[in-house]
């Protein structure tokens, strides 16, 4: 099966794969095309022309709610969640390399955080803030709610990374007289940098796209997914698709940045070798 010529099974599976990819991307491509709909166009085909009308429409606040404001909030929130996810997961990943009292509890909390439905976390945090008589806001309660979704991913990635980490690098650094901080800064960090980019990608995009966990925690100002969802119920023009194209474009940009930096680090490493040990 894995050897020899490509038989009919290969082509059958390849066709299935191609259909799956079409299924994944087809709808997104459809709305990308429709967002260039002419000014008199509808939510479906045919195209009545080709224009940037609906993109321009998007930036007129009175037409579609607070797009610019919610976009700004979601970007800031996403960046904050990204930074905190990277730092906290890295730090916890270091801790989990040794057995400590309570490590199992924290591990199972992380798993619980993944499997407890998002709406329950949202509801719980919303109720908690209500009981404590604190107003929920996107930068406090929603920030925490997003972290309960991004941190488990970050932690699990860190587990996978440190399980494959060659501890001799660290021992060598220690033998050469590096302090624990120097070992982290000049040995561990450079080696696992690509994985940290991955954790950051999870942190930003999961927060930027999160709906359910923001629902009862965002307070009086909407994040972007809440705003988009609100629009689906009362906007019946292709401006909705323009919004979809812009947000998806932004997501692709972030993914591209992550992939490019990932490759860049690997290339640089191949050219220069590891810079571990160059610490003075």
């Amino acid at each position: 099966m894995t050897n020899g010529r490509r038989g009919p099974v290969f082509w059958l599976l390849a066709a299935f794969f191609a259909l799956f990819v079409l299924f994944l991307y087809g709808p997104t491509i459809t709305i990308l095309i429709l967002s260039f709909q002419g000014p008199s166009g509808q939510l479906t085909f045919p195209m009545t022309g080709f224009s940037l009308h609906w993109f321009a429409n998007l930036f007129e606040p009175q037409m579609v709610g607070d797009f610019a404001g919610s976009l700004r909030r979601s970007l800031i929130l996403g960046l904050a969640v990204m930074i905190v996810t990277v730092v906290f997961s890295f730090s916890a990943g270091l801790a989990f390399r040794r057995r400590f009292v309570g490590s199992n509890v924290i591990f199972y909390l992380a798993i619980a955080s993944l499997i407890v439905p998002s709406i329950l976390i949202s509801l719980g945090i919303g109720l908690l803030f209500r009981v404590l008589e604190i107003d929920p806001a996107w930068y406090s309660s929603a920030f925490g709610a997003h972290l309960t979704w991004t941190l488990p991913f970050g932690l699990l990635i860190m587990f996978a990374v440190f399980n494959r980490f060659d501890h001799r690098y660290e021992e060598a650094a220690r033998d050469l007289g590096a302090t624990p901080w120097q070992t982290v800064r000049h040995v561990i960090l450079p080696i696992i940098a690509p994985s940290l980019i991955g954790v950051g990608l999870f942190g930003f995009t999961l927060s930027y796209d999160e709906y359910a966990r923001s629902l009862y925690t965002a307070g009086s100002f909407n994040t972007l997914p809440l705003e988009i969802y609100g629009m689906t119920t009362n906007v019946t023009t292709p401006v909705l698709y323009a919004l979809g194209s812009v947000t998806t474009g932004l997501s692709f940009l972030v993914i591209a940045i992550a992939l490019v930096s990932f490759t860049w680090i690997r290339r640089r490493r191949e050219r220069h070798g590891s810079d571990a040990g160059k610490a003075a």
Binding site: P27, T28, T30, I31, L34, L43, T44, F45, L201, T205, Y208, D209, Y211, P225, I228, Y229, T232, L240, Y241, L243, G244, T247, T248, S251, F252, V254, I255
Partner: peptide, 13 residues
């Protein structure tokens, strides 16, 4: 890594 809400909307047309 892209928005679920948008991916739902994109089925409408």
């Amino acid at each position: 890594w892209t928005s679920n809400v948008i991916r739902m909307i994109s089925w409408i047309p």
